[in-house]
Simulated assay, not measured.
Amino acid sequence: MALSRVCWARAALWGSAVPPGPYVARKLQFVRSGLAWGAPRSSKLHVTPKTDVKSLISYVATKTKVIHEKYHRFLGRHFPRFYVLYTIFMKGLQMLWADAKKARRIKTNMWKHNVKFHQLSYREMEHLRQMQRGTHPSKHDILALRECFSDHPLGMNQLQALQMRALSRAMLLTPYLPSVLLRHRLKTHTTVIHQLDQALAKLGIGQLTAQEVKSACYLRGLNSTHIAEERCRTWLGEWLQISCSLKDAELSLLLHSVVLLSINYTGTGR
């Protein structure tokens, strides 16, 4: 082995073509490979930015849930009667929206697949029957609640995240945003509709074409696909009477009217 090293050193100095021994050749090959590959990689795990974002979202969601629970306990402790009414109203609104959404899905499937009422399953028939038995609120019923929607807890600035998500779905807007952005977008959207209502009231519904009437109803939460044009004009007239009677501080009622005024409206006489 010593002789091989001497030969290799002499070849390097004198430029001799004498090859090194097999052991030296293997060792040199290993060293060259190590230099080509670079330093060995660290075995430590690196936390990706996605992991940090998920942790932050989870933390914010947990804190928001805790604050929401504390808020409900505060209302229940200091304002028990009001809290009962508030809870009943919110749960009723959520159940009403869920029932209306299910009924709309059933009717859409009936229309797509040309299914008659008697061809539905028992539960679907019963659900539609119960929804049709419900009463459609009049403009006087809705306007009588205007004071409840101008301040806490149903004012625009006091709406909870759960309420804003439900209202965003009703307005065909994505609900998957932070509460601050949801509130800002709902305010902007409702204000624009209110301004459109005032302009439409000056123009007159009679000046709109059939397609414009359908589009206007759809924008305000009414699925006008299977409703006659005359009934759509009647509904739009009721909406305008409500909208033009509200002040800017009461626009939360207009936002909720997307649900209240379109529920159980079948396009037939009352």
Rank of each mutant, 00 (worst) to 15 (best):
C232K: 04
Y218R: 07
L246T: 06
I263G: 00
G206Q: 06
V213W: 00
C244L: 01
R233C: 03
T209G: 15
A249I: 11
Q211N: 10
L219I: 10
S243K: 11
C244R: 05
E229H: 10
C232Y: 03
G267H: 01
C244E: 13
I242T: 08
S224E: 07
R231I: 00
L222Y: 05
Q207N: 13
Y218V: 11
L255F: 06
A216F: 04
A228F: 08
S262F: 09
S243V: 01
G221V: 13
T209K: 08
L261E: 08
T234I: 05
A249K: 11
S215T: 14
D248A: 14
T225Y: 09
E212I: 00
L251H: 10
Y265Q: 07
L240I: 08
S262C: 12
G221Y: 04
I263M: 13
E238Q: 10
N264W: 04
G267Y: 02
L219A: 12
G269L: 10
N223A: 09
S243Q: 13
L260K: 11
L246H: 02
Y218C: 12
L260Q: 11
L222R: 03
R270N: 09
V259M: 14
Y218G: 00
L254P: 00
N223L: 07
S262N: 03
E229A: 11
L222D: 08
T266Y: 03
R270Y: 06
Y265I: 08
C244M: 04
T225I: 08
A249V: 13
S257A: 15
L255K: 03
T234M: 00
Q241M: 05
A249R: 12
L255A: 13
A216R: 03
W235P: 06
L253E: 03
T209H: 08
H226K: 15
D248R: 14
S257M: 07
A210K: 14
E230T: 14
T234R: 00
S257R: 04
L208D: 05
L208R: 02
Q207R: 15
G206A: 05
G221F: 09
K247H: 11
S215W: 00
G237P: 01
L254S: 13
R233K: 09
A249T: 11
R233E: 05
S262V: 14
H226V: 07
L240N: 08
A249M: 01
C217R: 02
K247A: 10
Y265N: 07
E212G: 04
L219V: 12
L246V: 08
I242N: 04
Q211S: 14
I227K: 11
S243G: 09
H226A: 13
S262A: 15
L208F: 08
V213R: 00
S215Y: 00
L240T: 03
C217S: 11
G206W: 06
L222W: 06
K247D: 14
C232W: 01
A216D: 10
S243M: 06
C244D: 13
S224I: 01
W235K: 04
Q207I: 05
T266L: 09
A216I: 01
L253Q: 03
Y218Q: 12
R220C: 12
S224L: 04
L219S: 10
E212Q: 14
L253C: 07
E238I: 00
R270C: 02
S224K: 03
S262Y: 09
A210E: 14
